[in-house]
Design a protein around this nucleic acid. Structure first.
Length: 188
DNA sequence: TACTGGATTCACT
DNA sequence: GTGAATCCAGTAA
């Protein structure tokens, strides 16, 4: 398999997010197919709306991992994008392909559909934490090229936590049981 | 220095 | 459908 070259991540996050579907992500022994993504740029729901020490990586790099810690217990993994601006794509769900026993051990779950069907589930199953933050997408923690049938790519509902604001762009593959059960906004 | 709330998940009703 | 868990980045003072 061929690794995605650094230049592949130079475009805007909203363009990269659907193109990531079907690609193969690997961290060590764990391997899976990306089935759900979400694009963040400078919208109100994004860390990139204000550049801080944490979010600076969204502005300063592309083709790197941006891993952050949230809700006191979860990690989420993004790829940074956009050579000339601010952007990142959150990996929301992955279909497990290799290293399932290791994922089951890390997750405490047997059902393959419960191993990586959510951004924090993916991070836990693949052993991702803040030590991976800022690493380039290559080597031991990388993404391989793979074809994604265009007819299976679905553009979101634009789910977000702040009703009435500009929401992130979410994309997923149809006809897989491995996508997340993302919640709708609490109120319209 | 103190406070607030979160790009989530899970258990429970 | 609802709420708890849990800690850190960001913000205001």
């Amino acid at each position: 398999m061929r690794e995605l070259p650094h230049s592949w991540f130079a475009d805007d996050a909203v363009l990269i997010a659907p193109k990531l579907l079907g690609k193969i992500v690997r961290h060590g022994e764990t391997l899976g197919r990306i089935v759900e993504t979400e694009a963040y740029t400078t919208d109100p729901a994004s860390h990139g709306r204000v550049i801080t020490p944490r979010s600076r990586i969204m502005q300063d790099t592309y083709g790197h991992w941006y891993v952050y810690f949230t809700y006191g217990m979860h990690y989420c993994a993004n790829v940074t994008t956009n050579k000339v601006g601010v952007g990142a794509v959150l990996i929301r769900a992955v279909e497990p392909l290799e290293g399932l026993n290791l994922m089951r051990e890390r997750r405490g779950q047997k059902d393959p559909r419960q191993l990586a069907s959510g951004p924090a589930k993916f991070a836990q199953a693949f052993g991702i934490n803040k030590t991976q933050n800022g690493l380039p997408i290559q080597g031991d923690f990388t993404i391989y090229d793979a074809p994604a049938p265009p007819e299976q790519i679905v553009a979101g509902p634009r789910i977000g936590i702040k009703a009435g604001t500009e929401l992130p762009w979410r994309f997923y593959l149809a006809d897989t049981p491995y996508v997340s059960g993302a919640r709708r906004p609490k109120s319209a």
